[in-house]
Design a protein around this nucleic acid. Sequence first.
DNA 1: TAACACTAACTGGCATACAATATACCAGCA
DNA 2: TGCTGGTATATTGTATGCCAGTTAGTGTTA
Lengths: 228, 228
Amino acid sequence: MSANRLSVEPIGESQSLKARAYKALKAAITEMNIYDSKVELRLDERDLSAKFGISRTPLREALAQLDQEGLVRVVARRGIFIVRKTKAEIMEMITVWAALESMAATLACTVADDNEIAALHELVDDFGQDAVARRMGEYSDANITFHQAIIGLGKNQLISDITDGLFVHVRAIRNRAIFENDRAKRSIADHMEIIEALESRDGERAGKFVCDHTMRLRDHVERYVDIE
Amino acid sequence: MSANRLSVEPIGESQSLKARAYKALKAAITEMNIYDSKVELRLDERDLSAKFGISRTPLREALAQLDQEGLVRVVARRGIFIVRKTKAEIMEMITVWAALESMAATLACTVADDNEIAALHELVDDFGQDAVARRMGEYSDANITFHQAIIGLGKNQLISDITDGLFVHVRAIRNRAIFENDRAKRSIADHMEIIEALESRDGERAGKFVCDHTMRLRDHVERYVDIE
DNA sequence: TAACACTAACTGGCATACAATATACCAGCA
DNA sequence: TGCTGGTATATTGTATGCCAGTTAGTGTTA
């Protein structure tokens, strides 16, 4: 068959192999529940490069990036290992999250418009309807969505980027976090309170509420969540 | 005394070429005043590998790491460019710094011991003696040392790591920041106040003082420092 | 003279081959 | 049997060559 017109379709992925390998690996690691026992924590460059159908070079660059982000550890001539964060490290991450989201909330009182703040209601109310009925996993997702929304309202790209980086790690233990009913109720009340502070444009209070809320999560994890 | 047993100094850690290239490049970039006009912002893989006496592979990995940190930008088939942060990005970095140092100060009230807090006096008093006489560059260094000390007292490694990453960028504009005399005096008064709050173990106040102090720096930069 | 087409050099992305070394296994010896 | 040292193997680190896209310079043409 003669090509009477130029097929400009395919080119598709103009991304570098490194970028694609990075995304694939990150997604794969995020999916797997690395805190459950018995998962293989070891990776192999050559295996992976064969599976991805690329050479070791771009794969290595992707792995190096994941290493820097703290998702894996590349050890010379020994192997590549998926990193399990210690409980202490998780605690630190939640603390940093608290500091940054708190700042974002304060900033939001100045830079977010009314509509944006009003939109937060949906993220709380929608869930509030049948909180008890829903599975806790969904609650956790809704919870994180709410907090990411607040961070977005602060309109500080760096804060968003850093918390995104933390998100991967925090998400890994979310299923292990025990959200008993009381805590869920308390959490929703906190969220309402936060929205109210944002609506009244009281940056200091909004920041304090957010910080306290997240630090309570930290204490909860400290006390009830067992890692390792 | 005769050595009746072999003194076994662990063989000097032969760092990987990648690590060494990374350090050398980072130091070089940090040294140069990239915000001064006319500096060459372009790098070349082959040139650099020749100068370092290594092949392109480890050098590329070092550059990829610097790229991720935001110090350079590697553009396919066009070149590697040293990144000049925009003013908006600098502002965001100072904001993040404020949030994290503030949290560190709050934490310090709980986790730092009296001696550690008392040691802060030296960092302020030593400078306070002849503030006016000293060059502003030294003031800036002393200033940063003080703030890094507070961050250290928070004993949250993640906060230290993140602020260290920001430090490189913030340092690049420190020579452009105008520290007029009034500001220096005000700054010292702020520092005293912060130490006092730490000593009285009032986490909330310490955090607020630190945050306000750094946010004032932000406003100052916003108003008086010109980038680009 | 200006716009344009073409070519050659340059530059990062990628694949492949080789080097270095940590680990496991095994043979030999006390 | 238990220890010692050698050796094979596994695995990442590094060097090098080629490829494809970009850029700049040059010559050509209207």
